[in-house]
Amino acid sequence: MISFDHVSMRYPDGFEALKDVNFELKDGEMVFLTGPSGAGKSTLLKLITMIERPASGQILFDGLNLNRVSNKHIYKIRREIGVVYQNHRLLFDKNVFENVALPLRVIGTNVKDISRRVRASISKVGLAGKERKFPKNLSSGEQQRVGIARAVVSRPSLLLADEPTGNLDPQLSEEIMVLFEQFNQVGVSSLIATHDIDLLDRRKKRELRLSKGTLVSESK
């Protein structure tokens, strides 16, 4: 699904955020990306969504070398990826239904299919009946569920999450993780950045640990 081959990344100010990173995420695999704040987790995810580009090395996405993808075609890569953000990035002037529908509107799905798939996605994250609510009237756990529904509504082949439980209490975090596992069980490859070690310990998942931009350990 994803493979990093001697990838380094430098921000415009010269800071080297990733140094010679190598790893592979197999089809259907669920992997945790860990490390202290500032280790480079978000940067690594930004390389996959092509918000940033590597200074050197190669990233393969489904066999496609991302270095060969021009800016004009980045949108095609992004349509294959669902992303969940720590601050969920919901649009507060749109209701739950409209928020979740955005990725489908972007690819031009017809109205009937949008309605069906958005409802399915919303009920999958346990928010059935809250379609007409606005994000500000939801709890933070519910807001994050909306973010997840939006990330999976277009049935992406890869799900990325950047500290999706960062703002949630342990119980809500656990519920969110269970959701990710459910999506993984139906075949969605997932890469989840977190520094919540408790959540990890309870699961037998592979862990990629970053420290100061370097991959320090891969555990099974």
């Binding site: 949108y75 095609k76 649009l91 990725p103 972007v106 690819i107 939006r150």
Partner: peptide, 16 residues
């Protein structure tokens, strides 16, 4: 701005 950023992140073309 926020909405545009998000749209681009979820795969909207610039034209869209």
């Amino acid at each position: 701005r926020q909405e545009i950023e998000l749209m681009l992140l979820i795969g909207a073309t610039h034209g869209f």
